[in-house]
Design a protein around this nucleic acid. Structure first.
Length: 427
RNA sequence: GGUGGAGUCGCCUAGUGGCCGAGGGCGCGCGCCUCGAAAGCGCGUGAGGGGGCAACCCCUCCGUGGGUUCAAAUCCCACCUCCACCGCCA
């Protein structure tokens, strides 16, 4: 959520910034709603002040035995007026709130204008492996190596699900274990959050109302509260400090968590993305930081570096892209994607998205901190980065590391867990 | 799932319609005292919003949302959360 005071004081600046990621921006309705709200607030408050006086008077008169019937009648009339005025104010506040909730974050100056085509590759690591004449894609490799059972996965969960089996499950789990250990050793706080979150958490994280269709909702029988399956651990970790004021000295808070991520992926690219590149459920380790604004820049660099380091330790060829304003998600100011090479698709696929939200998420979720004891509060800055999405790494690993005989070299950090250096086809 | 109890200013707590627009204690901050400290004494101690150049004024918040009333922390309704016991269960 953007700061209404900023919009009010410098609408041109806000408008220009937003045009980077929106076709048209009309702040008129926002400014009108704001003006109306402030006018009504003034009226309601002075009326309420008046009512307090009257009620006090009546109390005194009654105590001294005077008849107060007339005064009560007048006060009741004022009360009715206040009820009406309050209704108008509530309406105006809702209008303003709804309008504000719809505005995306202001992109950073460094974020290129435009969509996907304007993304800038800022780093490339490693090289495309030479896979000979007939490289196999990960579906073929995972099947022949017995890592993933696609058919039975669909039998269990329906279209968009797969089943890790044997060494495949071990490989996936070894990746998660490897990442968790890395973050844990680096001093990040390990969190294993609930996977079902309340609707409030969804609104705070910006999941709702706009992207409500992207997640799975769990409806309680009747009258109960609805909840939803988290689409990423980011949603959960952001909400850890929702509606809190962090005492001086708390920041930075660096956390990470592992959860499966559940996404409907309705009407998505599924058909182009065979195998396990995109599904309704995938595994991801997520890093998250709550920091003071002046530390945000360093924090983002740290997160990008950590994500890149993990891919490098696995020995996979990847690139890092600075996302254009329209390709980054709406609540972020600046986003870098770490994209791993998928040979069979001939493209780089995102395995981490490292983003700086500024105070946009914090404002929405009500997360403040106290810079110094006794000083006023301020909104924290939030950042997040995958570290990493494992379900896309497994395809990258088997494809990039495949050998002419159909075997696959296991990345060094995973060998102890998996128990072998090479995965060989089953006969 | 059932029954009972509870949610007040960082923490503990007082408070059953106007004297609570919230009292006390602890903690914390400042000051006095002291060579210094402790003790003691005094003062202060939340969040959000509106108006004003400013001094300053005003409004909201006693788990959340409704309701009754001239007036609600206090009465009524619903919900959320916590605690205790019972039942069930990984």
């Amino acid at each position: 959520m953007l700061d209404i005071e900023l919009i009010r004081s410098d609408p041109d600046f806000v408008r220009t910034a937003l045009l980077k990621r929106m076709d048209e921006v009309d702040l008129g309705p926002v400014l009108e709603a704001d003006a109306l709200r402030r006018k009504l607030v003034g009226e309601v408050e002075s009326a309420r002040s008046e009512r307090k006086q009257q009620a006090k008077e009546i109390g005194k008169l009654k105590a001294s035995g005077v008849d107060t019937a007339d005064a009560q009648k007048r006060a009741a009339a004022l009360g009715d007026q206040i009820t009406e005025m309050q209704a108008a104010l509530t309406e105006a506040e809702k209008t303003l709130h709804d309008l504000l909730m719809e505005l995306p974050n202001l992109p950073d100056e460094r974020s290129p204008a435009g969509g996907k085509e304007a993304n800038q590759v800022i780093r490339t690591w490693g090289e495309k492996p030479d896979l000979g004449d007939k490289p196999l894609d990960h579906v073929e490799l995972c099947t022949s190596l017995g890592l993933i059972d696609y058919a039975r996965g669909v039998k269990l969960g329906g279209n968009g699900y797969w089943l890790y089996t044997g060494q495949g499950a071990a490989l996936e789990w070894a990746l998660l274990d490897f990442f968790n250990r890395e973050h844990y050793a680096a001093g990040y706080q390990f969190m294993l959050p609930p996977h079902l979150l309340t609707e409030e958490a969804g609104y705070a994280a910006g999941q709702f109302p706009k992207f409500a269709d992207d997640v799975y909702h769990i409806a309680e029988e009747q009258g109960g509260r609805n909840s939803f399956l988290l689409p990423t651990a980011e949603t959960a970790i952001l909400n850890v400090y929702r509606d809190e004021i962090l005492p001086a000295g708390t920041l930075p808070v660096k956390a990470f968590g592992y959860t499966p991520c559940y996404r409907r992926e309705a009407g998505s690219y599924r058909s182009e993305e065979r195998g396990s590149v995109r599904g309704h459920q995938f595994n991801k380790v997520e890093m998250f930081q709550f920091v003071a604004p002046e530390d945000a820049e360093d924090a983002l660099n740290e997160l990008v570096a950590r994500s890149q380091m993990l891919v490098e330790k696995l020995g996979l060829h990847y690139q890092t892209s600075l996302l254009a304003a329209r390709d980054a998600s709406a609540s972020m100011k600046l986003t870098y994607d770490i994209e791993v090479w998928i040979p069979s698709m001939g493209v780089y696929k995102e395995v981490s998205s490292a983003s700086w939200a500024g105070d946009y998420q914090a404002r929405r979720a009500g997360i403040r901190y106290r810079p110094e004891q006794g000083k006023p509060t301020a909104y924290v800055h939030t950042l997040n980065a995958s570290g990493l999405a494992t379900s896309r790494l497994l395809p990258a690993i088997v494809e990039q590391n495949q050998q002419p005989d159909g075997s696959v070299i296991v990345p060094e950090p995973l060998r102890a867990w998996v128990g072998t250096d090479v995965l060989r086809p089953r006969r």
